[in-house]
């Protein structure tokens, strides 16, 4: 059990704990705080996966931009009157819990099986899992350079479409949150 393993266990337990707290806390502002903590743990997990660029993007975009958006929108609302945070219905709630548990089991089981399958056919993959497992991690040097090369060659069309989406989304958000008559509209 190496240091990286211990780091993984600490970070993963933190992310799961704070993720559970996001769902369980009744106050949305605390939920957003726990969500920040969970995102930061996930960024640490990306670091253990030898992906520092993705970890940085995770911190900047999620903890920096998206969560600030959440908190600023929360400030618009009157939060004192949230009495019942969870949906009603014991039976349906039980069904939802059971369904989510089954989903988790199925995903984990399928992941486990698929990993064994990939391990079995790892000769067909050029740089395979087995080699990566022996050395710990594959030496992906210059990761950012490689990622940007791929982004501007193979995925250029998707990248441009994403730019278009980012143009459309603020317009849509403004159009949605704008009510005729401004903030003092009568209903």
């Amino acid at each position: 059990m190496s240091e990286l393993d211990i780091l993984f266990y600490i970070l993963s337990s933190m992310s799961v704990l704070f993720g559970a707290l996001v769902v369980l806390t009744s106050s949305p502002i605390y939920s957003s705080l726990y969500l920040v903590m969970s995102m930061l743990s996930v960024a640490g997990i990306f670091m253990t996966l030898n992906a520092p660029f993705i970890a940085g993007i995770q911190i900047i975009v999620y903890a920096g931009a998206v969560l600030v958006l959440f908190v600023m929108v929360l400030m618009l609302f009157d939060l004192k009157r949230e009495t019942k945070a969870f949906t009603k219905g014991r039976f349906s709630g039980f069904l939802k819990l059971v369904g989510a548990g089954l989903l988790c089991g199925f995903i984990a089981g399928a992941a486990y099986e698929s990993v064994s399958l990939i391990m079995a056919t790892s000769e067909e993959i050029p740089t395979n899992i087995a080699a990566a497992a022996e050395t710990g991690f594959s030496p992906t040097t210059n990761s950012i350079k490689e990622i940007s090369k791929l982004l501007f060659t193979k995925y250029l069309f998707a990248f441009e479409v994403l730019g278009l989406l980012l143009l459309v989304v603020p317009i849509g958000a403004v159009a949605l949150s704008r009510v005729a008559g401004g903030t003092h509209a009568k209903h």
């Binding site: 993963s12 992310s15 799961v16 993720g19 996930v42 997990i45 989510a100 548990g101 989903l103 988790c104 995903i107 984990a108 992941a111 486990y112 990993v115």
Partner: peptide
């Protein structure tokens, strides 16, 4: 992958 499944759930 198991951590991913847990967080997704």
């Amino acid at each position: 992958l198991v951590l991913s499944a847990l967080l997704f759930t």
